[in-house]
Nucleic acid binder design. Sequence first.
RNA 1: UGGGGUGUCGCCAAGUGGCAAGGCACCGGGUUUUGAUCCCGGCAUUCGCAGGUUCGAAUCCUGCCACCCCAGCCA
Length: 558
Amino acid sequence: MEHSKSTGNFLQTIIEEDLASGRVDRVVTRFPPEPNGYLHIGHAKSISVNFGLAEQFGGHCHLRFDDTNPEKEAQEYIDAIQEDVRWLGYEWQGDVRYASSYFEQLYAWAEYLVEQGDAYVCELDADQAREFRGTLTEAGRNSPYRERSAAENLDLLRRMRQGEFADGTRVLRAKIDMAHPNMNMRDPILYRIRKRHHHQTGDAWPIYPTYDFAHGQEDAIEGITHSICTLEFEDHRPLYDWFLDHLPVKSRPRQYEFGRLNTSYTVTSKRKLKQLVDEEVVDGWDDPRMPTIAGLRRRGVTPAAIRRFCDMVGTSRANGVADVAMLEHAIRDDLNENAPRAMCVLDPLKVILTNIDDSVNDLLIAPRHPGKPELGERQLPFSRELYIDAADFREEANKKYKRLVLGKRVRLRSACVIEAHDVVRNAAGEIVEVHATAIANTVGSDPEDGVKPKGVIHWVCARGGSRATVRLYDRLFRHPAPDRGDTDFMAQLNPDSLRIVDCAIIEPALAVASPGERFQFEREGYFVADSMEHSADSPVYNLTIGLRDVWENAGGAG
RNA sequence: UGGGGUGUCGCCAAGUGGCAAGGCACCGGGUUUUGAUCCCGGCAUUCGCAGGUUCGAAUCCUGCCACCCCAGCCA
């Protein structure tokens, strides 16, 4: 956004050079998810890279579902992925595309390869094929079916397509080199027989192309100029190029790889995410603790924060782990600037202002955002009884404690200064009420006697406030790398990742908010009205992220 | 042990032969009716290691080390 030219990443450099040399005259990228799961923060990076590069160079980005394996895919994911990409703020060029809409062309190319003598039908079963493939250090052996005639191969391929053969009994393979040091070049599989219903093509096909045989050609069909994927596909590039070299494609895309985005304290593997959902560790794919786009959205994270995070992390060819603190910073930064302020008392302690008459019902005015007067104001009911947070009162404390102390003063945010003079206890000896006096003429100014309050605390009027449920979320894992090698991620779960407060007290502005509205609860953090469960009758807020707190981080609680 | 990658501050990351950007985190100090925000300052004599080339190297050469990916009819 700012001065992005001076410190460009390697992809920007490549594109600039391609444009300058005339290798391409425009930029077309694509985001090609397989619709077999929900998008997560790692995908956001890929989305940001692909759509971002297109945007930056005045090009286009396609959204293409790489739906070559009906076994794991579903319409549900197609819908969710589109919603997530749009929510992130990106717009793809043209219609949504599907690999499956190119099946006919792909098949024609398969016949072409067979006719050229570059592909053959192999009848080795999966186990035999593995055995013939060799190992990382030993060459493989040629399949006994490798030297069939083009005519025989063509006949067999057509019969595969007709559905004459059972699943797994035959595959179409490219004839490349069974001794190639790159395993991907040892006569890779182009088509496999899989008699499954496909969410887009129905029962039209008994055979489906593999990723390798499909991806580059899809890119060529769409005129993709820069096909950007993650590092683990690097070994596939020679094969990607091999197909483009051997097929009469009309354009020549190139593949580039970058390092995946990993984030500390989180897992992003589909299998692990699914396990969290299946074992009901979380409430679903959109649980606010999930690193899915849907989860982040429900958590109250903004699209701008996610994009900012992706920009902050950058794009390189190194595989690293970004500190989740960077994401948190991006979230706070955006919300600090844009979220209206409001007050909510999470752990209510009643305060009675003994010098205020019970008949008083004032309405104080406070800005919705101290730095943005254009956001307007809100009204704060004020009367004899109110609530403050239990942690904001102590009978005695050292001078570092900047809240209400018996016999001392504190300012009520956006209201007057009060001085505590008494406490009321229950039978168990616990403080259930604080009695205080409001200092006259202190709304908007300091006490006339010159005794300034020690600090500022938030509060809500007992009469004007209402009760709410607030869910306090924390990171799902306590280990910085729950994913790592031998670590059992399920054993690293944070037992306190969710704490539900069901008797919080909120000011009126929070009761009337709409689902999805975000606020800063002053002195606490950023919260969002839950998109599913919040209503004026029964308000429900989710913690997005707490405010930075140097006092608490320094062990200030003591 | 085959092939492909990557190693620059605790984390991310610029840098492409001329004398180590930036962000996050962290540590000081200031402002503040949010212990927030904001502001100011600090934070790699050194670029995985060892040699070499050069007036000069994180950048070039050689060797070594560490880590990641690949043996799905997944993507």
